[in-house]
Structures are given as C-alpha cells and as structure tokens.
C-alpha cells in the first residue's frame, strides 16, 4: 500500500514510518504541519528546514503545510495537505505516530475516513518505555531538543536517547509522574539518523534559550 507519514521529525512519527516500511508498505511522501501555535494539541511543530533535510535524508518528497494552529482550522489545513498527497502521490493511507492521545488520533481518523483513506497508528497504546527501548534496539539516533516539565532542565538539551537516558527518565517518571516518552509534551526529540535515512545528519550550529524547566535548542543540521 502507498502510504503517507504525518511527520514531525521526532521519534514517534519517524519510528511509525520505519514500521510501515518494515511491513513492506511503500512510503510515498511525508506531510509536516508547520503551526504558528506552539501550544497546539494536534501537532509537534518541526522547523521547516529540519523537516526538509530529514525528508531528503530519507529520499522522500515532503508536503509542508502552514497553519495558524487555531483549533479546528488546523484540522482543515491538515485535510488540505492530505488531499494534496492523495492527488499527487496516489496514497492509499496515512501513518501517524499517535501513542495515547485520543484527541489527536480520532481527529486524524475522521479526516482519513472522509477522504476514504486507511489510517495506521502502529504505536497506538504502546508502553512508552518499550517505545524508547525499541528505538535504541533499531539504531535510532535521537536527541532531545526541547524540555517543558519539572524537573527537566537545560542540561537535558542535546542528550541522546540511550540506555542511560531511559534509566534516568524512568526514575523521574515514577517520582514526578512525567511521561517517559514525552507524550505529554514533557520533551521534544529530533531524529538525526535511523535505518530509513540514507545519510546521518550532523549538527553544525545550535542556539539554546529558555528558563527554569522550559528550554529549547534550535539546531542547524547538514
């Protein structure tokens, strides 16, 4: 089946794409929603440049759809992008990295249903620690680019998701009830390399800003 990935550049959507490919589906294109609303419940907003570079590393076309990020308008913008993917790349289904958010999953299901497309959520209801372990097992190189929950601080920016990270985040998730996979927006991630990439991405520049338990690292990659 020709599938399109709702792609944020982070670990979940990239892993979902990897699983689609592993199940012998053809990855036809990516869609990234570039939202002006940084607090969107629907989309983890990647930078346009990063998403383009990641798509190029996977040798896949990408549809970049801008949205103001207002609650129901952003869904219309998503629908518009999916329609383009259907028309241009003849996709038969959508793949998402949804894990636990029924808000996100049900809205995408409704759009797919309206456009007569299959909707695949391969990480749906999966244990968050297990996702992190799978990513390491499958040689994903992922770094943390944003934190937004106590007790995570500036020192977590740029950290690689590895076994030490899993150990530490597990302890913090038990103590402070934060989601170990960042599902609640506790942290955001960026995939620098994975089995889908033809070449790994290198960070050439970074800018860190924030305060307290809310920090962001903007990176340039090549």
């Amino acid at each position: 089946m020709k599938l399109c990935i709702l792609f944020s550049g982070g670990k979940d959507s990239t892993y979902a794409a990897y699983l689609a490919k592993k199940h012998n589906h053809k990855l036809a294109c990516l869609i990234s929603i570039i939202s002006e609303n940084k607090d969107s419940f629907m989309f983890h907003t990647p930078s346009i440049e990063l998403a383009k570079i990641q798509a190029a590393a996977m040798n896949l076309p990408i549809i970049l759809q801008k949205t103001k990020g207002e609650k129901e308008i952003e869904l219309k913008d998503l629908e518009k992008a999916i329609k383009i993917a259907k028309q241009k790349y003849k996709i038969q289904g959508i793949v998402t990295g949804a894990v636990a958010s029924v808000y996100q999953a049900s809205r995408i299901q409704k759009i797919c249903d309206k456009l007569k497309l299959e909707c695949f959520n391969p990480l749906w209801q999966k244990d968050q620690n297990e996702i992190l372990e799978d990513l390491i097992k499958n040689k994903f190189n992922i770094i943390i680019t944003q934190v937004a929950a106590y007790p995570l601080d500036k020192s977590w920016l740029g950290r690689k998701i590895d076994n030490t990270f899993i150990k530490e985040i597990k302890i913090l998730s038990e103590k402070y009830k934060i989601n170990p996979a960042g599902e609640g927006g506790e942290f955001e991630s960026l995939v620098l390399n994975c089995p889908l990439f033809k070449r790994k991405l290198n960070i050439i520049n970074k800018k860190i800003y924030g305060e307290g338990n809310s920090w962001k690292m903007e990176v340039d990659v090549e």
Binding site: M1, L19, A20, H23, H25, E118, F120, N121, P122, L123, W124, Q125, K126, D127
Partner: peptide, 20 residues
Amino acid sequence: KEIFHELEFVRPIKDILMSR
C-alpha cells in the same frame, strides 16, 4: 485484513495480557 493493523488492534490487547 492488513497485517500492519495488528499493531493497533491486536498488540494493545496482547500487551494488557502480557503485563498481567
């Protein structure tokens, strides 16, 4: 019908059983 859908509709139930 699609094997890829097992991850969404069968695996979560398998995980509940496994965890118990």
